[in-house]
């Protein structure tokens, strides 16, 4: 099967959705003529032109709000935040307007908008550019939040996000953009396209002794930890990739924990009210009698992102940390 980078897979999703629905429009800083700050939208402006691929000024509150307003009229904007970290300057537009206008209007309005961009640490860009706000976005009812861990999921989930009629916060990773995974051609697929519904988790590796529950880049950390644990310690890990934070596929999590009886929730959030906090609480409530050990959590170390490259590396979860945590449970 062909291999595709994460950014290329996203680009294919945009291209296919631009072709499918004339209401789909891509907007953001440098997405058009510059071909994208991270080259995710490369070539799309040349193909689709000024109407469908639009460069915006550096004006997040303004252009995100503009996209929200357009979505109320039935346009389907896919808005790039060059970094998800910039969500703070568009907070009111994202939370109060995209997230709450449906509720406050008693269901008269909906916002079919996608906000997307990289949301990760680990690239030595300092605390302001290293936010992972999936826990924050998912804490607002009305929002949906997606964090793909690989190119295949990124493409399928992006297509679902664009077709969704609610606001979807789509979080990518600059660390993953250049990495490649197997992504089938549409002609190889039974439905003729790659489409992954929101709210469906995926077991990325089957195992019997402990469940590693994760999303986004941390899934890859867990897969590497699982390899080490299997090969060096004979411990069989099941890796559950949440894929979507909200809606959340709790059943797949619970099924896995009921099988392995142990759970470690791994993400790159800061630990206070992280995604892992929510998952740990749900597991404790619904799988209490199945657990042989307390649910463990691993997040990034609880301080703003460190700039210094070797130190930042230690601040985010890495395979050895997961390995050590799992070994401590047996």
């Amino acid at each position: 099967m062909r291999r595709l980078s994460y950014r290329h897979a996203l680009r294919e999703a945009f291209d296919e959705e631009l072709a499918r629905d004339p209401m789909v429009v891509l907007m953001g800083e440098e997405v058009a003529q510059y071909n994208g700050a991270y080259k995710v939208t490369e070539g799309l402006w040349a193909k689709w032109g000024d109407k469908r691929i639009i460069d915006t000024p550096i004006s997040e509150a303004g252009f995100i709000g503009m996209g929200v307003g357009a979505s109320m009229l039935g346009i389907r904007p896919v808005m790039e935040l060059m970094f998800w970290s910039f969500y703070t300057v568009a907070w009111d537009q994202i939370i109060n307007n995209a997230g709450m206008v449906r509720y406050m209007s008693g269901g008269l309005i909906n916002c079919p908008i996608v906000l997307r961009g990289p949301a990760n640490g680990g690239t030595n860009v300092g605390a302001t550019h290293s936010h992972t706000p999936e826990n924050i976005m998912a804490s607002f009812p009305g929002m949906k939040c997606v964090c793909p861990s690989n190119a295949y999921d990124a493409k399928g989930l992006m297509k679902a996000a664009i077709r969704d009629n609610d606001p979807v916060m789509f979080m990518e990773s600059t660390v993953l953009y250049g990495q490649e995974w197997e992504v089938p051609e549409n002609s190889e697929l039974p439905d003729g396209e790659l489409f992954i519904p929101l709210g469906v988790a995926d077991v990325k590796r089957e195992g019997t002794d402990v469940s590693l529950i994760s999303h986004g880049r941390a899934v890859n950390t867990c897969l590497e930890a699982a390899r080490i644990l299997e090969e060096e310690h004979g411990i069989s890990c099941e890796v559950v990739d949440l894929r979507t934070i909200r809606p959340l596929d709790e059943e797949t999590i619970f099924e896995s924990v009921r099988k392995t009886h142990r759970a470690v929730c791994v993400d790159e959030n800061k630990p206070f009210c992280a995604v892992s906090s929510q998952i740990a609480a749900s597991i404790s409530l619904h799988c209490f009698d199945d657990l042989d050990a307390p649910v463990q959590r691993i997040g990034s170390l609880d301080a703003p992102a460190f700039y210094s490259p070797p130190i930042e590396k230690l601040q985010l979860p890495y395979p050895d940390v997961v390995v050590a945590k799992v070994l401590g449970m047996f």
């Binding site: 429009v25 509150a61 709000g65 307003g69 109320m72 009229l73 537009q93 307007n97 406050m104 209007s105």
Partner: peptide, 30 residues
Amino acid sequence: FAPDKNYWGGHGIVGGQTPLGTGLAFGLKY
């Protein structure tokens, strides 16, 4: 709100409705 009457609110945060109005105009033009 009354979208059927082209009325889009009714917004609580001072000035927060102005990007939305800009977006309505964007939608019309699009």
